[in-house]
């Protein structure tokens, strides 16, 4: 068994064909096992969900409300519409704010100022804060301004706070990827800094910003924890119809159904999981499509 020391002292050529050394074979096998294990887990999850949920992947799932009396005919209508409302509210709050913050930090902020560095460090930390904390924060905020907790607006605030750091960070990356020559050229032609950002830098960065934003929104779509803390409405039999309307979302509904005693509800949960997975896959596919189609090489 070769130690790392022995490997390091071997000539480069021997290491290049390192597949022959027992240590590197063992390492490669370990890597494949790790990869295989995670894919296996994912496949098991997918296959069991599909097998459990397939009989319920019908139009009732989309058009009916959840039903305690007849769970075999129930559906996720309120949850689907609620998810759309909350994601729309999240997007309206998080996207302009996130992009504006990214533009400020990347194009205007002076990184030598202590407060800008403080914002920078905070952003990195906020991106790693557990989702549930944003739910608590929003619940407290809603109480202090007299807003009911379990409404679309509160859900939107919680999810917007959750994904704001992610949007800011990815939007900054996208802005940073725009070559400095573009800005310099624009400024040299007499454009003001604001015009340069608005007409040159930001449009050039849009593909990257859009990709990051969609991925952030798809994370928000799959999130249950912060919304559960906001009251976790699980049974509503009406379509949410405004920012101050009560709501439920797909992850909350799935969480509730999966915990029920009746097998009908668990089947419904599996069907809703498939639905949620399809929605998430579509959003992620859209992000990849935008990236591949509009990405520019400078």
């Amino acid at each position: 068994m070769a130690t790392i020391g022995q490997l390091a002292t071997q000539p480069i050529k021997a290491r290049k064909h390192g597949a022959k050394s027992p240590a590197s074979i063992a390492f490669l096998v370990a890597l494949w096992c790790a990869l295989g294990f995670s894919i296996l887990c994912l496949l098991t999850l997918l296959i069991t969900s599909v097998m459990d949920g397939l009989p319920r992947l019908d139009s009732n799932l989309l058009t009916q409300y959840t039903s305690q009396i007849a769970p075999e005919r129930g559906g996720a209508r309120a949850a689907i519409i609620g998810s759309l409302w909350v994601i729309a509210a999240t997007a309206i709050m998080a996207i302009p704010l996130g992009i504006a913050a990214a533009v400020y930090l990347e194009e205007f902020a002076d990184p030598r100022r202590w407060y800008n560095r403080l914002i920078e460090v905070n952003l990195q930390n906020l991106a790693a804060v557990p989702a549930i904390v944003y739910g608590l924060l929003t619940a407290g905020f809603a109480l202090s301004i007299g807003l009911r907790r379990g409404v679309v607006l509160a859900g939107g605030i919680a999810l917007a706070l959750l994904i704001l750091p992610v949007i800011i960070i990815t939007a900054r990356e996208a802005l940073r990827a725009v070559p400095a020559e573009i800005r310099q050229g624009s400024l040299a032609l007499g454009a003001t800094p604001l015009q340069t950002v608005w007409r040159q830098t930001l449009p050039s960065a849009i593909p990257g910003v859009a990709t990051g934003t969609i991925l952030a929104l798809s994370r928000a779509l799959g999130e249950a924890a912060p919304l559960l803390l906001l009251g976790g409405l699980v049974t509503i039999r009406f379509d949410p119809n405004g920012l101050l309307s009560g709501f439920t979302t797909l992850p909350i509904q799935i969480f509730n159904w999966a915990g029920r005693a009746e097998a009908d509800f668990q089947q419904l949960a599996a069907a809703a999981i498939i639905l949620l997975l399809v929605m998430l896959l579509l959003m992620n596919a859209l992000a990849i499509l935008i990236r591949n189609r509009y990405q520019r090489q400078w």
Partner: peptide, 26 residues
């Protein structure tokens, strides 16, 4: 208790279709 109140809300809907009974599980 949530399934019970939800079922009550569901039956109630037949009598009062304009009332939205929403049930949470905190």
């Amino acid at each position: 208790v949530e399934p019970l109140t939800s079922a009550a809300g569901e039956f109630f809907l037949e009598e009062a279709p304009d009332v939205n009974v929403s049930v949470g599980t905190s």
